[in-house]
Simulated scan of single mutants.
Amino acid sequence: MTMMPPPVTVQAVQQFADFDKKRNKFAPLMAIVVLHIAGFYAIQSGLLSRVVTAAMPTITTISIIAPPAVSVAPSVPKTVELSAPVPRAVIPPLPLIAVAPSEPTITPPQPTRAEAAPVATAAPTAPAAPSPTPPAPATPRTVSSVEYIKAPQLIYPNLSRRLGESGTVVLRILINEKGLPEQILIQKSTGYTNLDEAGRQAAQRALFKPMIENGKPVPVYVLVPLTFQLS
């Protein structure tokens, strides 16, 4: 069996509307009363004073202290005592003495010891004997030809070969007692530095037969021509 809701009457609807109007009329009044009660409670409990204190800015007090005054003592002029001047001694003038004039005398000059002694003539000094001159060192003489033990072997420079350089270099060689080339000078150049240097190195590697004079080897100079020719 189903229960049916009670029917809504016109009187009930009218009562509900009157109640809603009264509630809307008293709602602002209730809010004002609640706010007054809350403010009164804040004043009694000190909460309002703490909020105002926190909102106020902090005031900092700055005091300026003036520096102490320095007293300067007035300068007092010094008193300097002046010494009294020392009086000068007064020297009385000397009395004048009359001197009788004497006759002038002439004294002949006495001869000095150097003038009395006879002048000794200095004897002529003998010329110093000339010191013996040291013998002049013997200069190696230049010979026309020498014999080879090992003849110079010419090495044609590759650069000179590519450039087509050729010519004859004449070397002045000092051969010592052992037959070694001790000094090599260029007497006549080929006109090319590479060929001259190649000839000098070839002569440096050569070996000569020593020159014998009076049964002993002596150093000599010899002119050696070396020819570079392209084949």
Rank of each mutant, 00 (worst) to 15 (best):
P6R: 14
S75G: 05
P57I: 03
H36R: 07
P217M: 01
E197A: 00
P157I: 04
Y192H: 15
P152W: 08
V13K: 13
T121Q: 03
I64M: 08
S102G: 03
P85C: 04
Q153R: 12
T121N: 14
M211D: 02
P93R: 09
S45N: 15
Q110C: 06
A100M: 08
F26T: 15
G39M: 12
P74R: 02
M211C: 01
F26A: 13
A89M: 08
K178R: 09
E81C: 04
S71D: 08
T9C: 01
P210R: 10
S45I: 13
V222S: 02
A116S: 09
A73H: 05
R205E: 06
V119I: 10
T227E: 12
T107E: 14
T125D: 10
T133L: 15
R50T: 12
P135L: 11
P109G: 01
I173D: 09
L94T: 15
L154F: 02
D20W: 04
P135A: 07
K209G: 01
A42D: 11
T227L: 03
V146E: 04
P219N: 01
P109R: 01
P87M: 00
I155Q: 11
G191Q: 12
P95A: 10
I155L: 10
F208C: 05
P5L: 01
E177S: 13
Y192D: 06
L96Y: 07
A69I: 15
V119C: 05
I91M: 00
A55D: 12
A151E: 14
P134Y: 00
M211R: 03
P118S: 05
T190S: 15
K21L: 15
P6N: 15
V72L: 15
Y148C: 05
I155Y: 00
T60D: 12
F19A: 15
A66C: 01
A117M: 07
T61R: 03
S83E: 01
L154C: 00
P217F: 06
P67F: 07
F26C: 07
A122N: 11
K22A: 14
A54L: 12
F16T: 13
P67H: 07
L226P: 02
Y221C: 00
V222R: 05
I173P: 05
P74E: 09
I212A: 00
I43K: 10
F208G: 03
V8H: 14
P152S: 14
T61Q: 06
A12V: 10
S102I: 14
I186H: 03
T139V: 10
K22D: 09
Q201W: 03
A198H: 04
T121M: 05
R172C: 02
E81G: 02
E115G: 06
M56Q: 02
V99K: 08
T105D: 04
P137C: 07
P137Q: 11
A55P: 08
G39W: 13
M3L: 11
N194Y: 07
P152E: 13
K21Y: 11
